[in-house]
Design a protein around this nucleic acid. Structure first.
Lengths: 144, 144
DNA sequence: CCTATTGTAATTTTAATAATAACAGCATAT
DNA sequence: ATATGCTGTTATTATTAAAATTACAATAGG
């Protein structure tokens, strides 16, 4: 497959909502910024809404963050979008007649869980506000 | 794309080499255990050899670990196989006319780097020996 | 009522990965 | 030395998850 940009796109959407609180924010307008199509934006927003990170109502183009930007972490967004899908994947298709493969993979799971936990712990330390701060610094820098 | 099992398969290969030090270990024999084809096994082994994790010679079916199992970390394997490819990917295809997208993505990079570093730091704490220990415990457990 | 938009699902296209195939070159045995 | 088996490498094809696209019922607001 192509590799996933869903987390990046979701953060983009959240920032875009934060940065445009008053305007009419249709999925089409957001899609223009992400350079994708409104359907994809609405799919991601649907997941963000189910995770209670944004609020939005059918027919009304005014999505809003449901929490402060400082209260939304990258882990919240990751879990909203990816659910339990991990960063690393076992090969679950090894030869079952050769016990080595199966048991190595099962042993690996335990360590992959640790790696996943370390990554998610770091995600939990990063908020949408941090990303927005980085964004604003960049904007300032460009104006110099 | 389908998601990558290259790291898992590479660990499998390394363990298989460790566990079968004397036998004739052709890529075909390893491929049977991974349930894949010899060409794929040789591709991964080529990367492992370039990273000096194994040694092998053309025409001679006797690959060997180039280091102690306790000296090979998951980060070594990950970097051998994936190089600089990260776990999380920016969307580098946002609308350049809308500065928001571009700058949000650039701001994100800094935080993705932190997440990648956290994940790799945990990988660096896990050795092939750890995985082998987990494997042996599992084998023992099954015999009970 | 009419228009714009959401929320959702179904289908198609794209692209990274794994599978497959092919072959020159080396090692070992006979 | 010759034959056989295997490696190392490259090229091509198939597979499959992600993104793009399409469609439409349902709601908000004028």
């Amino acid at each position: 497959m192509r590799f996933s940009t869903r987390l990046s796109d979701s953060v983009h959407i959240l920032c875009f909502i934060y940065l445009n609180p008053d305007e009419n924010l249709s999925s089409e307008r957001i899609a223009e910024s992400v350079r994708t199509n409104p359907g994809y934006v609405r799919q991601l927003m649907s997941l963000l809404r189910k995770a209670e990170l944004i609020s939005s109502t059918k027919g009304h183009a005014k999505p809003m963050l449901a929490k402060e930007a400082g209260e939304i972490t990258l882990r919240d967004v990751y879990r909203a979008i990816e659910g339990d899908k991990p960063l690393l994947h076992l090969d679950t298709h090894t030869n079952p007649e050769c016990g080595v493969g199966v048991n190595i993979q099962l042993a690996l799971q335990e360590y992959y869980d640790r790696i996943q936990a370390a990554a998610e712990a770091e995600m939990a330390r990063i908020t949408l506000q941090d990303v927005l701060d980085g964004y604003h610094e960049r904007i300032k820098g460009n104006k110099r």
